[in-house]
Simulated scan of single mutants.
Amino acid sequence: MHSDPAHVREFFAARAADWDDRFPHDGPAYRAAVAEIGLRPGQTVLDAGCGTGRALPFLRHAVGPSGAVVGADLTPEMLAAAVRAGRGADGALVLADCARLPLCDDVVDAVFAAGLIGHLPDPGACLRELARVTRPGGLLALFHPIGRAALAARQGRRLTPDDLRAEPNLRPLLDEAGWTMNGYTDTDDRFLATASTKA
């Protein structure tokens, strides 16, 4: 969708101020997805491409006060919107490209990524980087509050066989990046692909 990080940043910077207002009913879908990935109290979770931080309160609730939540995003305006919405209290917000994270190897138990994969200039590089920072056996959840067909309709386009999030395309991409796909759901009201890092 986007050719480089500067275009991604520009796209979201222009939309940051009213992003939450455009999609006011997504909260329950975020809550359900976070609940499904099975986070436990005390764990460390990364929200990759956290945007305005809509998942952060649910991630914080899942890992509890003894856990750690990090939200990383490329766009300063989106992080500023997260702070304005009070979500900075739910996790540490970091300005970073998900393909070059300022994190050590094997430091997070899980990665939550909402709407991220379709905006990446190099999805493989980002998925490899997410695997690098995730402990062996750690989890990845690629989420969108609506499914592929519904999103395509919203954007006025048709689904094509080369769609990155189609299971036959996504499974080998994850595999090459160090992940094993565990689950795949693509319905009108949700997209959720889960994977774990290879030991």
Results as ranks from 00 to 15, higher is better:
residue 48 A to D: 07
residue 47 D to R: 13
residue 171 R to P: 00
residue 113 A to T: 10
residue 42 G to R: 05
residue 146 I to P: 12
residue 69 V to W: 13
residue 24 P to E: 02
residue 187 T to S: 15
residue 13 A to F: 05
residue 62 A to K: 04
residue 73 D to K: 13
residue 72 A to L: 02
residue 79 L to I: 05
residue 64 G to L: 02
residue 185 T to I: 08
residue 131 A to W: 04
residue 92 A to F: 03
residue 119 H to Q: 13
residue 142 L to F: 10
residue 96 A to C: 04
residue 104 C to I: 08
residue 143 F to A: 13
residue 161 P to Y: 07
residue 105 D to N: 10
residue 27 G to S: 07
residue 100 R to M: 09
residue 154 R to I: 00
residue 186 D to E: 13
residue 38 G to D: 01
residue 16 A to D: 05
residue 195 A to G: 07
residue 143 F to S: 14
residue 178 G to Y: 02
residue 126 C to I: 01
residue 102 P to E: 06
residue 172 P to Q: 03
residue 85 A to W: 02
residue 174 L to D: 03
residue 46 L to N: 09
residue 85 A to C: 02
residue 25 H to T: 09
residue 96 A to K: 15
residue 182 N to K: 10
residue 33 A to V: 00
residue 58 F to W: 08
residue 86 G to M: 02
residue 167 E to A: 06
residue 159 L to M: 12
residue 140 L to M: 04
residue 147 G to F: 01
residue 172 P to E: 00
residue 161 P to C: 02
residue 71 G to W: 09
residue 178 G to N: 11
residue 104 C to A: 14
residue 119 H to Y: 15
residue 196 S to R: 10
residue 181 M to I: 03
residue 151 L to V: 06
residue 31 R to Y: 06
residue 77 E to F: 06
residue 129 E to L: 01
residue 92 A to Q: 12
residue 171 R to I: 00
residue 173 L to E: 02
residue 124 G to L: 01
residue 6 A to D: 14
residue 159 L to K: 14
residue 96 A to F: 06
residue 26 D to Y: 07
residue 156 G to P: 04
residue 80 A to W: 11
residue 32 A to C: 00
residue 107 V to P: 01
residue 79 L to Q: 10
residue 163 D to C: 11
residue 2 H to A: 08
residue 156 G to V: 01
residue 110 A to G: 10
residue 24 P to D: 05
residue 71 G to F: 07
residue 127 L to I: 02
residue 158 R to N: 15
residue 188 D to W: 04
residue 150 A to H: 05
residue 43 Q to L: 00
residue 63 V to D: 05
residue 104 C to W: 13
residue 176 E to A: 09
residue 104 C to D: 14
residue 188 D to K: 12
residue 67 G to A: 06
residue 192 L to Q: 12
residue 181 M to L: 11
residue 64 G to P: 02
residue 102 P to F: 03
residue 153 A to M: 01
residue 181 M to N: 09
residue 77 E to R: 14
residue 26 D to M: 03
residue 6 A to E: 14
residue 184 Y to S: 10
residue 150 A to R: 09
residue 105 D to A: 06
residue 30 Y to G: 10
residue 142 L to K: 14
residue 140 L to S: 12
residue 87 R to Q: 14
residue 128 R to W: 05
residue 174 L to P: 07
residue 144 H to A: 11
residue 107 V to L: 06
residue 127 L to G: 08
residue 8 V to Y: 15
residue 6 A to H: 15
residue 83 V to Q: 15
residue 104 C to L: 09
residue 152 A to K: 10
residue 53 G to K: 13
residue 192 L to P: 07
residue 33 A to T: 00
residue 93 L to S: 12
residue 120 L to R: 10
residue 8 V to K: 15
residue 30 Y to R: 13
residue 196 S to I: 00
residue 11 F to M: 05
residue 1 M to N: 15
residue 99 A to W: 08
residue 107 V to Q: 13
residue 40 R to S: 13
residue 114 A to T: 07
